[in-house]
Write a protein that binds this DNA or RNA. Sequence first.
DNA 1: CGGAGCGGCGCG
DNA 2: AAAGCGCGCCGCTCCG
Length: 574
Amino acid sequence: MTGPAPTWTIVAGRDLDRVVLVDVTSDGTELSRRTAGRDELPGLVRAVESRADGAHRWVWNDTSRWYPALLNAGVDVARCHDLRLCHAILATSALVSDAADLRDAVVWSAPAGDDEADDALFLLDERAGVPDDPAEVRGEFVRQQAAVHASDDPDRLRLLLAAESAGALIAAELHAAGLPWDAEVHDRLLTQALGTRPSGGGLPSLVQARADEVRSALGDAQASLDSQPKLLRSLHRAGVPARSTSRWELAEYDHPVVAPLLAYKKLMRLLSANGWAWLAEWAPDGRFRPVYVPGGVVTGRWASSGGGALQLPRQLRPAVRADPGWVLVVADVAQLEPRVLAAMSRDIALADAARGTDLYEGIVAGGVVSTRQEAKIAVLGAMYGATTGDSGRLVPALRRAYPRAMALVDDAARVGEDGGIVSTWLGRSSPPPSAAWQAVQARASDAEASSGDDTAARRAARDRGRFTRNFVVQGTAAEWALAWLADLRSRLAALPAVDDGHPAATASGPLFSRRAHLAFFLHDEIIVHAPAAQAEEVAAAVRMSAERAAMLLFGGFPLDFPLDLRIAADAAKA
DNA sequence: CGGAGCGGCGCG
DNA sequence: AAAGCGCGCCGCTCCG
């Protein structure tokens, strides 16, 4: 790595309403210190950022506790080190040979704080989060830097920690900026699908109509459709011997109740998950602002909390609409996980299959399986550990064609079955087996173990093997996506602001109404909201960042990560 | 009354 | 079409 030497400033001391800023060296040695009122912080940060040369990092206990207020004040930062998230990685990483100090610091394993809740009633509740005392914060920083330095691969870990911390910044910015949401389009989609919105307590007209058809087909005007046990009994009375009321099982029965019931369930799902109540609660001002939770999934994927950001139904994507004069740049990576697997395992044959734009067609072209659908099922089965059905049947063909890639996931599964730890490409490690899991294994190896004990142990082992098999791929894909996001973020920040902010400027706060900004992220997909005049520039940045992410993680390994990218007024899927 | 658990289904 | 990974949220039911 070249460029200016990194500099660091610890920000701490929140509870005292006095902020302490400590400039430190990369090993935590204090250089200088000052204190300021909380209201002064944005100005101080802005001053440092404006003269920073790109290598300055803010070190704080928890990005979600500090950054939202800065964003509200119109200040963003280029880089940070999020101690809470980095602690979670380092305390369990197999690359860290001696993590005893970190593991002892259990207070750093607290869940994230919530800046907005702080101002309410929760200051002293148990969700107080990780420490913010300046000495504690600096101590943790010192521990983390030492752990990285002494680790088996400091470069990989530094990359992972930088990506994770950038993700924390991005998550806060995504929330602040929001996803532009057109309530009129949403309302129209709902009305088309569900019928007229009821004024009182009843169901929308088309939902009610389906419910009437279901009850008529069941021959029971009082049938309860929303209680699974009651519905199941009604179905039995009507001659449908279903064991569950799930969609795929119901679809197998040839009975007049099936079609309207499936339709009813689909409509009710839309109504309850993303209906008018959702619209009023989650997108009241032309922006959908989910709470993203970086590192919320053990594999390193993000989770979300509130609004169901990660479950937006395709059906509603037309409601994601750019402001007038702006566009959306929507991009996702085609088959990210198998590509990541090819790169991790240095499987040239699989990389060759991935050469064009469609990895699955590449597998067909290589004569491994005969159709694209088979290729897809086989690949998913390989990564998820399928053993039965079409998927399990196709995996052996994959094992012959791509032995290196398959060996990587098969090894990960074996390690998991044996109770071991697996790690992603950059060094995020799987959690150890739970106490319950170990107890099940121990019981089976007891001299007086029953065959039931043995079966249970074997099943638990295989379950864990499927988890670790998938962990290495899903987790490395998450790392690739973080690197993509982080690089894109800095490219977007370098674009000029536009003169006239979009009309909904107030909706996206002071920072994002005049600048191209990330607006959505979902595992392998991003949406950028950009001034129309910058659309092509943004699209180029999105592509360059993907290339950069591949280079950062996998160096010169010859593998494409092609994007499906479109520039449009809305985010409807093709 | 509230919380945990479950079936079900949306997303990758 | 649902075997195989990871999530969050809904409504209902059960239980303390």
